[in-house]
């Protein structure tokens, strides 16, 4: 029998017996970032494709939420900090190697863009809105005029943000579960899927919902493919990675992962959406809420499970 123990009684809070330094704040931060990225992506891409009039909710309404999502996300990150009064140190250096720093800067850029974008649509959505100052009115018309110019960087940054939510984790080689390049695309796709779900919920336009439903089904399929790929990759990997995968294949996280993420969060809503496309009456918010919840739980599980996995030595 092999036995391994600390003989010096090591039992550090949040580190032993397994790492738990990131609690609920980080998964929420990642979730909100993903949804925001997805919304901005769809909004930008449909604008670029010239479909902004057909996709009102996607392009104009949903982005109004984004600044709030981002600021709230950033607040979550702030809550996670243990030396809060030193928060400003984040913005005294640019450290491209640090995903945490990188994220902070990406948010620093994309949040104002999202605010400008939303600002350009505020009057369209809320016709009673009054900008009050002339300078703001001029600025608004300028924004409206150059929307396409904004759409391009916004779409690109949205992709970066979406990928970042995965890379923040996959940058940590030390955690075998996170140590895979699939996590970036997976989180991007998952973020887009949750954004699509949110848009479907918000939209009253049947056609738009149908388009987003199709997109969501496609995204879910890609996501499922990535998940299978992820687990297969682990099983073919090092002992530490096999251990990591086993958390989901018979281990502690198997039931919640397959029940809440894979089935209730992906397969079942996809089926419901397919039914809806086929013309069956399904209340739209059911698959949408399932997808959103699935996405949130997914991040909770990945963050928590990732911290449990470690190198063996």
């Amino acid at each position: 029998m092999r036995e391994e123990l600390f003989v010096s009684g090591r039992n550090i809070p949040n580190i032993d017996p397994y790492l738990n330094i990131w609690h609920w704040q980080i998964p929420i931060y990642l979730f909100l970032g993903g949804v925001a990225a997805g919304i901005l992506f769809f909004s930008g891409i449909f604008t670029i494709l010239g479909k902004d009039h057909k996709m009102r909710t996607t392009v104009k309404v949903a982005p109004l939420l984004v600044p709030f999502l981002l600021v709230f996300g950033l607040f979550m990150l702030f809550l996670d900090l243990k030396h809060k009064l030193y928060f400003w140190q984040l913005y005294t250096t640019i450290r491209l190697e640090s995903p945490m720093g990188w994220g902070a800067w990406v948010l620093m850029i994309i949040t104002p863009i999202s605010i400008l974008w939303s600002a350009s649509y505020v009057r369209e959505i809320f016709p009673g809105w009054d900008w009050k100052f002339d300078i703001l009115k001029t600025f608004e018309s300028w924004l409206i005029k150059y929307r396409l110019w904004i759409a391009w960087p916004m779409t690109i940054y949205a992709v970066i943000l979406g990928i970042y939510t995965g890379i923040l984790l996959s940058a940590f080689n030390a955690r075998p579960l996170w140590n895979t390049s699939i996590l970036g695309p997976l989180f991007l796709v998952s973020g887009m899927s949750t954004a699509a779900a949110l848009i479907i919920m918000l939209s009253k336009d049947h056609k738009e919902r149908k388009i987003m439903g199709r997109i969501d089904i496609l995204l879910i399929l890609i996501e499922l493919f990535f998940i299978v790929h992820l687990l297969m990759g682990f099983l073919a990997g090092s002992e530490a990675q096999i251990n990591a995968a086993s958390l989901f294949l018979g281990g502690k996280f198997t039931a919640p992962f397959f029940t809440f993420v894979v089935f209730l969060g992906l397969i079942f809503p996809a089926i419901l959406e397919i039914f809806e496309l086929k013309g069956f009456k399904v209340p739209v918010y059911i698959p949408a809420i399932l997808v959103l919840l699935g996405g949130l739980i997914f991040r909770f599980i990945i963050v928590e499970a990732g911290q449990i996995t470690r190198f063996l030595y």
Binding site: L77, L81, K84, Y86, A171, F172, A174, R310, F311
Partner: peptide, 27 residues
């Protein structure tokens, strides 16, 4: 210590669990 914001990234990054979060907030 005076530059550390206590984000925990380095704790996640260390394969040896060699760091800890000091009760005063810094790592």
């Amino acid at each position: 210590h005076s530059k550390c914001i206590g984000c925990g990234a380095c704790i996640e990054a260390c394969p040896y669990d060699a760091r800890y979060s000091h009760p005063d907030g810094y790592v």
